[in-house]
Design a protein around this nucleic acid. Structure first.
Length: 262
DNA sequence: ATGGTGGAAGGTCCA
């Protein structure tokens, strides 16, 4: 069994108490974090090791972004990948227990205006997805698990209002098209949708700017766990930890967990 | 038509 969690923490230092709770209540073997927002010197290695995650792979820059893989099983072949010519700390991978290659990505959010000509952030996002598509079109040696904050909600039931959100960055047709192409070319399988049917609305993110997020439930599913198609039968469970959004000092994203029988 | 909140090279920038 392998329990893999992905979580955009929006600052690892602020979220340490919740990380401890995730570790205790959900008992993941591996946690992929995005937006750690801490340079290497500020990263709380010791406190995370005390939670049982003795093996840590970190790719970070001061201030923004940053991704990490926290693991109880041993890690090897750690790789950090700058994309679209930027050293932005958005993609790291490691081999877990000599069995799987886990990739953790943080796709650029893309700004507010869904127009690549007038918004460089949006152009960067599209280029990032294109580059990732090429990257993952080539098979690795080990079976691959890919997770992270993709900042795109591809399906109608990945957003609270499909029609309205088609004009909002994260659910525009061009983003959805590119993410679907990424999915197909990489021959991936959506581990979360194996358990939650396509007809069910599920979200992993609720904006900080909506204080009534619980009653309005205007969420989006931005965080994903994709696995190699061959591993599809190994998925035995999935959990979106919505209760984390209601905690004291929450991230705007909640942890997403998959359980694999392998 | 803009703001709302949260977090970070501490001042705006990004989400």
């Amino acid at each position: 069994m392998l329990r893999l969690a992905t979580w955009n923490v929006n600052s690892i230092r602020i979220r340490l108490p919740l990380l401890a709770e995730l570790s205790k209540r959900e008992v993941p073997d591996v946690i992929c974090l995005q937006e750690v927002k801490a340079k290497e010197d500020d990263f709380p290695f010791d406190k995370i090791r005390q939670l049982g995650f003795e093996n840590i792979a970190l790719y970070s820059i001061p201030g923004y972004n940053g991704v990490a893989i926290l693991s109880k099983p041993p890690l090897s072949n750690i790789n950090k990948y700058p994309h679209v010519g930027r050293d932005d700390a958005r993609h790291i991978s490691a081999v877990i227990d000599d069995k799987f290659e886990v990739h953790n990505i943080y796709v650029p959010a893309g700004g507010d205006v869904p127009d690549a000509k007038n918004n460089p952030s949006f152009a960067y996002k599209l280029d990032f997805v294109d580059e990732a598509t090429e990257f993952f079109s080539n098979k690795g040696i080990k079976p691959r698990l890919l997770c992270g904050d993709f900042n795109i909600a591809p399906s109608e039931n990945d957003v609270w209002n499909h029609k309205a959100l088609m004009q909002i960055v994260s659910h525009t047709p061009i983003e959805v098209e590119k993410l679907n192409r990424f999915f197909k070319k990489g021959k991936f399988f959506d581990a979360v949708r194996k358990i939650y049917p396509e007809s069910e609305k599920i979200y992993s993110w609720w904006s900080y700017r909506n204080p009534n997020w619980q009653t309005n439930n205007k969420g989006r599913r931005l965080d994903h766990i994709w696995i190699d198609n061959e591993l599809s039968s190994a998925v035995v469970g999935t959990k979106i930890c919505k209760y984390f959004r209601a905690k004291e000092r929450p991230s705007d994203h909640v942890p997403v967990i998959v359980e694999l029988k392998i």
